[in-house]
Computed example of a mutant assay.
Amino acid sequence: MAHISHPARWLTGLTLLLLAGTAAAAGLQNVRADRTGAPVFAFLFWNLFLAWVPYVLALVMTGLDRLRAPGWLLAGVGVVWLLFLPNAPYILTDFIHLGAIPGAPRWFDALLIGSFAATGLALGLASLLLVHHLVAARVGKVTGWVVAIGSLALSSVGIYLGRFPRFNSWDVVTNPHGLVEVITSRLADPLGNPFLLQFAVLMTGGLVASYLVTWGLSRALAGGRRTGVAQYGG
């Protein structure tokens, strides 16, 4: 992975870019609400807020790594990060609402949902990039890639659980019995739900492809030099 010589400047630029995407998405929703008199897509604000959570947690992990925090503390924050990570690409599934809510041209609603979905996906991929770099620097490149790909595969299952059985990240605490019951029933008959398998495979493939592009861009922007990307601990 490539070395970033000014990680603070790089993170600041990345965060500002993500904030700009958030502002653009919010602006489109506000225009629609103003023209139609009803904020029918207001739920996208909540979805995008949840998409920011894994990115903020990745920044926290980066800061803890710079302070040489123990591995158990980083792992604890990492578990919470993984629980919230599916919320970022989850917004991609909000395209199911396209054409279902009248009041604006379909092309405008596609642009509106797309702006939220693209920003959410970018937040998730950016957070994964930070965590990937951190794990690779601490444990090794192979482990870094295992964590990255594994996180995307688990996120695909999380997106399914959120869109269809309608679970949330916090159900791990508020409704663990219901969540475990659904998961165990699926594991007991893994081939009994073809749609779940198809959804997980296609979503994982799309997310992995998107992440590989993100990873490649990070290398290009860093100048292609080797050693660890963003070894924030020095």
Score class of each variant (00 low, 15 high):
I91N: 01
G178D: 06
G27D: 07
G103T: 08
G228I: 04
F41L: 12
Y232W: 12
V229C: 02
P176M: 13
L121Q: 12
I101M: 14
G234K: 06
R35K: 13
A188V: 02
V213K: 09
S156F: 00
N30P: 00
A38K: 06
P70D: 08
A2E: 08
P190G: 13
V147A: 15
A100K: 15
L111C: 15
F164Q: 02
W215M: 07
L18E: 14
P70T: 05
T12N: 06
L212M: 12
T93I: 01
S127F: 00
A69L: 01
L125N: 08
V146Y: 05
M1V: 12
G228R: 09
W145H: 15
A25M: 03
L129K: 09
V79L: 13
R66G: 15
A209M: 11
V213A: 15
T36V: 14
V31E: 14
A25S: 12
G37W: 00
I183R: 01
P7A: 07
G99S: 14
P194L: 06
L17E: 07
H97D: 11
W46L: 06
Y232I: 14
L134S: 15
L14K: 12
L207W: 01
H6E: 11
A25R: 04
L217Y: 10
V31K: 09
P7Q: 08
V142Y: 02
G223P: 04
H132M: 05
I4E: 14
N30Q: 13
N87T: 04
A20E: 08
G140A: 13
L121C: 12
G233W: 06
L130A: 09
G228C: 02
G140V: 02
S151E: 02
Q231K: 03
V131I: 12
E181F: 04
W81D: 05
V213R: 10
R225Q: 05
H97G: 10
G124I: 00
F49S: 06
G140T: 12
L98A: 14
A8M: 06
F167Y: 15
T184W: 05
T227P: 04
V31P: 01
A126F: 00
A137F: 02
D34H: 13
G13V: 00
Q231E: 07
N87Q: 09
L111H: 07
A25Q: 04
G228T: 11
F49C: 05
S151W: 00
L128V: 04
L67E: 13
A110C: 08
P70I: 02
V180G: 02
L57K: 04
T119I: 01
F195L: 12
V201F: 11
F167V: 03
A117Q: 08
L202Q: 07
S115T: 15
L57C: 03
N193W: 13
